[in-house]
Design a protein around this nucleic acid. Structure first.
Ligand SMILES: NC(=O)c1ccc[n+]([C@@H]2O[C@H](COP(=O)([O-])OP(=O)(O)OC[C@H]3O[C@@H](n4cnc5c(N)ncnc54)[C@H](O)[C@@H]3O)[C@@H](O)[C@H]2O)c1
Ligand SMILES: NC(=O)c1ccc[n+]([C@@H]2O[C@H](COP(=O)([O-])OP(=O)(O)OC[C@H]3O[C@@H](n4cnc5c(N)ncnc54)[C@H](O)[C@@H]3O)[C@@H](O)[C@H]2O)c1
Lengths: 220, 220
DNA sequence: CTCGTTTTGTTCTCGCGTTCACAAACTCCT
DNA sequence: AGGAGTTTGTGAACGCGAGAACAAAACGAG
């Protein structure tokens, strides 16, 4: 129904609206919100039009009202239980991340295959054995899982999650994981992001190099 | 020259090729590589065709040769120096991330505004005051910077980075940062990813709900 | 050497997303 | 009340990316 590209931007608008609300702003135009969200105002209006007509012509949008409508559309008016698997460097950072709670997610369990970690408290939540996954998933009706294990373990963890009823996975491991139809996977990959930056950086360098060469060597 | 969508997939191919090479495979077809990378084989071939004709019809691609060609195109045949700013929960995880080094990046400095952190060793690299940014950037010719500070500090840090000569920024803070033309910014945002998953999760739930309602209520 | 098999590289078509441009709708001032 | 000024919501044009389909090229068997 709502285009995927729009869905990916709604959370950005939500964050921008929250920032505006915290700044005491009650009403904003599409131009204001667009610049706060870093997008084009026409795109913003078109995106919002998929949700309904929540603005007032000649006036703009009511910040709190629009915020609620977007939150409702995304589905973050209530908290989602989340499990994190793989409590190493990254898992610790994720578990300590306050943005989880404030944006509609609740970490209900931290799981790790390394039994030496069992019982360790991270941000007040105890680390439990990976084998507890099924029990926790069914007890808390967990639909969203986060994978922060090494790449080699990612597919196995994903399979276990799916078997336990998880239908959305956020994967931080640099590995392609395959899941049955109906299960969503999103991946976050630091090295891919850096490599994309490196590609553009290299092109900039070539560009400058050519300009310099042209300046020195004259017209070629 | 190369479409942006293709650039974003080249690192994935590179990783898949590395995995194949480690498995002792010397040659692969577009079908093999595509399934290892999780994409369609037609798309893969089209992507590779932007780089040149590095395959052999009827045979496939030489794994090592293709790997080198992609690495060269991305610009990761030599290491890129990187600075990380904000050595909190996430910054620690990033500094400890071994995938940095193995994929063409070298952390040359860890910076934090909190002077209590100065001197702390993280993965063998000492944390230094944020004000050392300019000196480090010019000494190591740093072009790529990573922001892992709170959102409120992100724009300031970005401005200082740009002034120090950084032209590519990877931003982990949940904030829109604006930079001059010629500077690239990529953002990684955990909560946005989770919210996208939540949206689809909610839709799945509605879908099931409707099916259940239809099954109970009969044809409506 | 020739023919069949395999697999690449490329052309073509379709659909999605972005952006422009403007009519409709609302407010405020006179 | 009416007109001027704003700002939304959307229709239409355009460009890019995905995928199917196929021709060209390499290889091996006979
Ligand atoms: N550290 C970072 O900043 C960073 C950045 C980007 C991506 N990543 C990726 O995230 C993943 C985790 O990185 P890390 O630095 O935290 O690694 P890590 O080695 O510190 O932690 C991995 C954890 O996963 C656990 N584990 C291993 N196999 C498991 C299994 N089958 N089930 C459950 N738990 C298991 C280990 O016991 C360990 O605690 C890696 O795939 C890495 O490539 C890390
Ligand atoms: N922890 C996570 O897993 C996680 C996940 C996603 C996003 N994030 C985001 O990453 C950022 C960092 O998260 P964190 O959990 O590491 O926070 P943190 O508070 O643990 O660390 C932030 C660090 O930045 C330093 N800092 C503050 N202002 C600075 C400045 N102006 N210049 C230099 N350094 C400065 C602080 O001293 C601190 O060490 C936040 O924006 C957070 O929203 C974190």
């Amino acid at each position: 129904m709502i285009p995927e590209a729009t869905v990916a931007r709604l959370p950005v608008y939500l964050r921008a609206l929250t920032a505006l609300a915290e700044g005491g702003i009650r009403t904003c135009s599409s131009e204001d919100l667009a610049s706060a969200a870093g997008v084009n105002s026409a795109k913003l209006r078109k995106d919002l039009s998929y949700l309904g007509s929540y603005g007032t012509r000649g006036v703009g949008y009511d910040v709190d009202y629009l915020r609620y409508q977007i939150a409702r559309e995304i589905g973050v008016t209530h908290d989602w239980p989340v499990v994190i698997v793989g409590i190493g460097n990254l898992g610790h950072a994720l578990a300590n991340y306050s943005g989880f709670r404030s944006r509609g997610f609740r970490v209900v369990a931290l799981l790790d295959a390394d039994l030496d970690r069992t019982g360790e408290l991270v941000a007040g939540v105890p680390v439990r054995p990976f084998d507890d996954l099924e029990a926790i998933a069914s007890e808390h009706a967990v639909a969203i899982g986060v994978i922060a294990t090494p790449a080699a373990a990612a597919q196995d963890v994903a399979d276990r999650m799916v078997a336990a009823g998880v239908t959305s996975i956020l994967n931080f491991a640099p590995a392609v994981i395959s899941v049955p139809e109906g299960v969503d996977v999103r991946k976050v990959d630091l090295s891919i992001e850096l490599q994309i930056l490196a590609y553009h950086e290299q092109r900039k360098a070539h560009e400058t190099g050519r300009e310099v060469a042209a300046a020195i060597g004259g017209d070629q």
